[in-house]
């Protein structure tokens, strides 16, 4: 499998040392979940479930494991009371840092590159991107 990868694109699109790509599916979904707004833990879990149509139902423990790692890596930040959400002062809200935003975007591009390769090999039709515009 990895051999095929190497042939269809530049190495950088699969492994990015600086941005620590590729991301695990959970990490990527986590970044996506907080891309539009700050969310607290339960909000993140709900958003992931929603975004993947329930295909991904991560355990809360696993989510926090990832949160800790990405906070340490500077991908996400957490704050007690962001301005735009109703406040429960015990809750932490998590949002993307600039690095996190760039990482998520790079991962998305990487994934898009993979899908583009699959389209070129006629594994799937070009229409797979259509539903993005709805």
């Amino acid at each position: 499998m990895s051999l095929t990868h190497f042939r269809i694109g530049s190495r950088m699109s699969f492994q990015n040392k600086e941005l620590r790509l590729p991301l695990t599916p959970l990490s990527f979904q986590l970044l996506l979940a907080i891309a539009d707004k700050h969310r607290h833990g339960y909000g993140i879990v709900k958003e992931i479930e929603l975004a993947t149509d329930g295909a991904m139902k991560p355990a809360t423990g696993a989510v926090y494991l990832a949160i800790q790692r990405m906070v340490d890596e500077g991908l996400i930040c957490n704050e007690a009371a962001p301005g735009d959400v109703a406040v429960d002062e015990r809750r932490r809200y998590y949002g993307l840092t600039e690095l996190g935003r760039r990482t998520a975007a790079a991962e998305a591009t990487r994934l898009a590159g993979l899908v583009g390769a699959a389209v070129r090999k006629r594994l799937v039709g070009g229409g797979v991107f259509d539903n993005l515009n709805d």
């Binding site: 607290h40 833990g41 339960y42 993140i44 879990v45 809360t60 423990g61 989510v63 926090y64 949160i67 800790q68 906070v71 015990r90 809750r91 932490r92």
Partner: peptide, 16 residues
């Protein structure tokens, strides 16, 4: 980990 995320994790689990 507990100090940083413990209480928050508990809240999230309770919500779920």
């Amino acid at each position: 980990f507990r100090d940083r995320f413990g209480a928050d994790l508990c809240l999230a689990v309770s919500d779920r």
